[in-house]
Structure formats: structure tokens, C-alpha cells
Amino acid sequence: MNEITPDKFEIRDYLRLDLMPHFMCPGCGHGIALRALLWAVHELGIDKDNLAIVSGIGCSGRVGAYIDANTYHVTHGRPLAFATGLKLARPDLKVIVITGDGDCLAIGGNHLIHACRRNLDITCLMLNNEVYGMTGGQVSPTTAETRLTTTTPAGNSEPAFDACKLAEAAGAGLVGREVTMQTPALRNLIKEGLAYEGFSFLEVMSDCTEIYGRKNDLGDSAEMVLAQKSDMRPEAYTNSAEQPFRPNRLVTGILARNDRPEYGDTYRRQAAALCGEGDDAA
């Protein structure tokens, strides 16, 4: 319905067909997010050879493996650190980080805030399904209060994180959020992020139907997708004193734009200057 490019987007051109069908559970929102990402890549005309996908550990980490491009599957929480090195060494590559809520905010929380602070030209796609799905459904930093997980059998007692506010405060160039249900809108957001010169942090609200949805009785896959439609699970986003980090309503779209110098340029100028001095001295 919303195609702009004259030639149609065929997702098979971007997938490793020998690995399909992918390992994600039935109804998992990560597949929809992957489609939106590839769609955005297609519409921006990014060459697969110049595309580097770095992913961490977890369900989201496996998403990158199905993309027929240069993909790196690195240690838990470190995709942003790896991508920083990659982007500094090869500034010609388009570097995309696919990470999850646990990977990005818990194990790699440290790397996230420093990647935001540096503002290097990386697009970070955080697939937020509010749980550690692959390891059996443990509580994650974005699990909403009172939700049941395998490690919180009496309901989660910790407040949940608003990752977008964190990224904005840490200085990320572009911060956005979208739900998987709005696939064309998600594609547009990812396009903005890819086109942005600087660090763009995009939170994708995904669904874990098999583990999180089942344990919390959130309905089947279709119901969970439909629940994203408006205020999206409002009980998870109450803006009370107990939930200081949560917006009372799930705001989507571009949430913050913080135009600062891109770090790669600064770094290369400094490196060139230092190299020049070294040459003169020799």
C-alpha cells in the first residue's frame, strides 16, 4: 500500500535462505522487526556488501544471523563495543547493531551509555520484548512491575526501565520508538535512524508470546500484536510514583534529536593530526 520505490521489496533477496525458516517461536515479534529493518535497507538502497550487522546474545542476537550481509554475533552485551571498533576502523561501512533489552540494558548497559555519549554513526536497534526469552524467561530490566517471569514467580517488584529516556539523557543523537504492529511506520523510523549521521537508538516494542505472553496470560500472538495498537499494555506504563521511569502512555516515533558532532570525524581528525606530527618528527 505504501510502496514508494518502483521495484518491489522482496525480503528473500536479503535473507540467508539456507537458514530459513528462522528459529524464533511462532508469533515472535522479532521477525516483524527484521522485515522492517530489511525493508528500510532496501528503500535506502544500501548495498549488502557495505552493510555490517552486529548482534549480541539472546533471541535478538539471532535475528542478525538471518541477514545475508556481513554479520557478527559477538559476546553478551558487547555488540555496541564491537560496532564502535568496527565503525572507527571501517567508516565506509553502514553499521547496525541488533540487540535486546537484556543484552543492551543489563549486561551491556555500560556500553550503551558510552556509545550514546560518543555519538558515533551507528544505528542501534533494541528489540524490547520485556524478558530474557532464550534462556527461559528470566526478568529483564524492561519487565514491567507485577509481571510474572521464571525468576519473579510472585510478580516483578522492580520498576522497569525507559530505555529511550536513558539514551536521550546519555546524549544519543537520535532516539525513537515504534511498535512492530505498525510495520510501515517502523520501517520509516529505521530509515530515519539509518540516514542519521550519529548514534541513533531505536527501541522496537516486540512481543514474546511463547514465554512472557503465556506466563502473564496476555493472549495469543494476534492479541498481543493488537494490544500494541493504542496505549499498548497501559498497566505496564503507569506514570505513578512507583514507576518513575515509565511514560504513562507508550509514545512512538522520534522522541529526541540531539544534533552534536559525529565522533568518527573528530577521531579521524585527531588521528591524522597525531600521525602528521609523528611524520614531521621522524
Partner: peptide, 21 residues
């Protein structure tokens, strides 16, 4: 759009937007 497993592809046999071609 919403198939997480890419199992469905919709093909419009006639051009979808004749005026944009």
C-alpha cells in the same frame, strides 16, 4: 507485513499505482 516468518508474500499482478509508474 505482520507475518514474523515471512511466509506470505502479496503480489499485485496489475501495477498497484498506475499513475506513479
Amino acid at each position: 507485513w505482520l507475518c514474523p516468518d515471512f511466509a506470505i508474500a502479496v503480489h499485485h499482478e496489475t501495477p498497484e499505482r498506475p499513475h506513479s509508474a
